[in-house]
């Protein structure tokens, strides 16, 4: 199963705020299986979607090199449920960011009606303790970010467009070279 619980970025301002959308589809396995007879989108996956929105938001400025993990769900309040056919709008706002981690406030709405409010804490894992490799292969993450159309909307605090980091582009080029080389062999 692909563990992506957002569909697309619609807004992204470096280290400040990001908005994503998530369409709730009856064909998704968790919808039908979570509570048979009452198909709705699990709250835990809404939290995960906000964690993905906020996690990418707080790790972009460092070129996605920091190992960013959801460390704490400080608050999660749900006012109702999301059902098939709904489109959720997930807004993440950075409240605080330090070398060790970040705090993000999240709001989820459907058609302008508040569905959920949350506060998520992210930790940036220490390279000394956890190694200096990234959590995901850069070329894979880059492909995901393109699918999510992050670079279509991402800007820095001055409104300048954000491009994909060079180290990710290079990883992508290297992966392509490796595939070509494997085919030739």
């Amino acid at each position: 199963m692909r563990w992506f619980w957002i569909d697309r970025f619609t807004e992204f301002v470096r280290d400040t705020r990001a908005t994503t959308i998530k369409n709730i589809c009856f064909g998704e396995e968790p919808i039908d299986d979570y509570l048979p007879g009452f198909p709705h989108y699990p709250h835990s996956l809404i939290i995960e979607g906000m964690a993905q929105t906020g996690g990418l938001l707080v790790s972009e400025a460092e070129g996605f090199r920091k190992k960013t993990v959801l460390a704490k769900v400080s608050k999660a309040i749900f006012h109702h449920v999301a059902i098939p056919g709904d489109q959720m709008v997930l807004e993440a706002i950075v409240q605080n960011k330090q070398p060790a981690g970040a705090l993000v406030e999240g709001k989820v709405t459907i058609g302008g009606v508040l569905l959920a409010e949350m506060e998520l804490g992210f930790a940036f894992l220490d390279d000394d303790r956890f190694g200096d490799t990234t959590l995901f292969p850069p070329e894979d993450l880059l492909r995901t970010l393109r699918i999510l159309k992050m670079f279509d909307v991402a800007v820095d605090q001055n409104g300048n467009r954000i491009q994909a980091p060079e180290h990710m582009l290079e990883a992508e080029r290297q992966a392509a070279r490796d595939i070509r080389f494997a085919r030739v062999r």
């Binding site: 704490k72 409240q95 981690g101 930790a123």
Partner: peptide, 8 residues
């Protein structure tokens, strides 16, 4: 991790 939250 709570200390980070407390600091914030």
């Amino acid at each position: 991790i709570d200390f980070l939250d407390i600091v914030f």
